[in-house]
Every structure is written in C-alpha cells, then in structure tokens.
C-alpha cells in the first residue's frame, strides 16, 4: 500500500500541477473557457491539437500577455520555495526551518526598500528584483559568516545568527520607511505582500536561469542530502565533507528562494508547509521528497493565486495573503497532531 503510494506520488503531483495551471489560466476577471485555453496554448506552441477552434483575439491576448507569464512565475516561485524549504529542513534536521529563517526574506526587503528609496525602480523593471536578490544574498552571507567559527558552521548558531540578522535588517527597513514619503511606502508595502499580478515575460526570463541552476543541482544531490540529514556525526562517520555540503545546500536554497522573493515578494508558508506535509505522507527520503516538494509547491502557489482571483468578485486577494490563510491553519493542525503523537 505504502510503496504504491510512493510510486504514484510524482505522477499524481504532475497531474495536480497541470490542473492548477489550467485553472490559473482560465480564472480571473475575464473567464476564459478551458477549451480556448487549451486550443490557444496548443496552437501557440505548435501542437497538432484543436486547430479547428478559433480563439478570440481578446482572450488570446489576456492569456499570452497576462495569465501565462503570471502563471509561469507562480509555478517557478512555488517550485523554488517548496524544494528550498525541503532542503533547509533537511540540512537543519528541523522540520520547522523555512526559507525565511536564515535572513533571506529580510535581506530581500532591505534590498527592495533601498531600491525604492533611491528611486531607481523607474529606470528598469529589473532594478527592484536585482536589489532584492543582492540584499538576500548579502544577508545570508552575513548570517553564515557570523555563525562560522574555525571554518565550521554549527546548525544552532546558524539559526540564531539568522534570527539576529533578520531582526537587525527589519529595523533597518523600518528606519528607512520612516523617512520615505507616502507613495514610496505604499510601493514597498505592495512589494512586501507577495504577489503575482502584473508579472510579465521579463520576470519569467529573469527568474529562470538562477532557479534552474539552484533547483537542478539540489535535485542531483538528493542522496547526499539524505546523509547530511542524519546528523553531523553520522554524516562525517561515513566520510561526508559535512561543512562543504552544508554551505553548498545553503547557497543553492538561498539563491533559489532569493530569486523567488525578488520576482514575487515575500510569500510565506509554501516553503514551510509543503515539504512538511509531504514528509508526513511520503517519508523523509529526499530522492522522492525533493521532486515532490517542487511539484506540490508549484501547484499550491498557482492554485492559491487562482483562488485569490475568484473568491471575492471584483477584487483580487494577493497570493501572499492566500498562502498564509490556507497555510497557517493547516500548519497549526499539523503541530497539534505532532504534539498528540509525542504525548
């Protein structure tokens, strides 16, 4: 029974991603019928299906210029947050670790607030994401350097350093906010609540290279992550260069998450809840858990975004709010369940 579940997990998740994608492309202020979505996609990428269906120009424009880039950004960010969360929980051997924990989000926020304060966001669409990425990587770098002693990075020190760096950077952000004028504060505020609206093809192209590298290498190193997750002594006893791998995984997860944060703002709970839930369902073997977290993260985020567009008629709930509304209660339920199991 259980082994059957595991073999079916990835195919089922692929179907779930496909379904979420379809819904996300169809739902919104202008509802596009499913057969238009499929026909337009099929014609657009040259597949020999639905050539008889003529998709109206308005629908096709919304689909290709608005919904598709938005959905693709959502899929990538969700996938990146899901797999990064799984990796961080693995290297910290802590099911409560998430991409926010080592200063990534607060670093990205500081980068963003400086970009907004300096007024360089108008020059290029890339300015804000680039500054956010820079801030996130600097914050992770600071966290690791603070925690490092004699070339080693103890897990607990790293977590504490992450909290300290996060709080310090939040204070920096708050300090800058107090001297900004109202429109800039609003721009920042909009950025902090993660969102996928107005994502264009530029965002897709911006996010693909770093995420593909980060995600690809993490998937390749799933076996090593299993050894690392068994604890430092066990990993060293079987000959693993623990420090090197821990830093490598940290860098890959940071790069992936930071890229996600910089194109979509802070989106909580995906990196925390998705891997945690899958570990309960599928077990801790990262060779299955990493691809599963990737797919489930993508499906979850895109579904949240699609739901946010149709729940309240005439207005949109931003995806960062949706993930928290769905993720927080579920996570509380998991915690209660875990506590009962330990009693």
């Amino acid at each position: 029974m259980k082994s059957l579940d595991r073999r079916l997990a990835l195919p089922l998740l692929v179907l779930l991603v496909a379904a979420a994608t379809l819904l996300s492309l169809a739902w919104g202020q202008m509802a596009i019928p499913f057969h238009y979505v499929i026909a337009s996609l099929s014609q657009g990428i040259g597949l020999p299906f639905f050539h008889g269906v003529r998709v109206p120009a308005d629908e096709a424009a919304v689909l290709w210029q608005i919904r598709l880039p938005r959905t693709l950004v959502g899929l990538m960010v969700g996938a990146g947050l899901g797999i990064s969360g799984a990796v961080l929980q693995g290297i910290f051997a802590n099911p409560l670790a998430d991409p926010g924990i080592i200063g990534i989000s607060s670093g990205a926020s500081v980068g963003a607030i400086f970009a907004i304060a300096a007024g360089i966001t108008g020059f290029s669409l890339y300015a804000l994401p680039f500054c956010a990425l820079l801030g996130a990587l600097l914050a992770v770098g600071c966290t690791v350097l603070l925690a490092m002693r004699h070339g080693r990075v103890p897990v607990l020190t790293l977590l504490l350093a992450g909290v300290v760096v996060g709080m310090f950077l939040a204070a920096v952000t708050a300090a800058v906010l107090t001297v900004l004028d109202a429109s800039k504060v609003q721009a920042y505020f909009f950025w902090t609540i993660g969102s996928l609206d107005y994502r264009r093809w530029e965002h897709v192209f911006l996010a693909v290279p770093p995420m593909a590298v980060g995600i690809g290498i993490m998937l390749l190193l799933a076996r090593q992550l299993n050894v690392l997750a068994m604890g430092e002594m066990e990993a060293r006893a079987v000959g693993m260069a623990v420090q090197r791998y821990r830093l490598l995984f940290l860098l890959l997860a940071s790069l992936t998450t930071a890229t996600g944060v910089c194109v979509s703002g802070n989106i909580g709970f995906v990196g925390l809840v998705v891997p945690h839930m899958l570990r309960l369902l599928l077990g801790p073997d990262h060779r299955l858990l990493l691809p599963a977290s990737l797919l489930a993260g993508a499906a979850f985020l895109v579904l949240c975004d699609a739901l946010g567009r149709i729940v309240l008629p005439g207005m949109e709930i931003r995806v960062g709010i949706m993930t928290a509304f769905i993720g927080a209660p579920y996570f509380l339920y998991l915690l209660r369940r875990e506590a009962r199991r330990l009693d």
Binding site: N226, M230, P284
Partner: peptide, 14 residues
C-alpha cells in the same frame, strides 16, 4: 539520534 522517520534501510544505505 536520527531525525525524521528515516527507515533502517535508509540508515544502512549511508
């Protein structure tokens, strides 16, 4: 102490 629900075979495989 092995964190998470790693199986006996997972541990031996390392």
């Amino acid at each position: 102490e092995i964190p998470f629900a790693y199986t006996v075979r997972d541990v031996v495989r390392t």
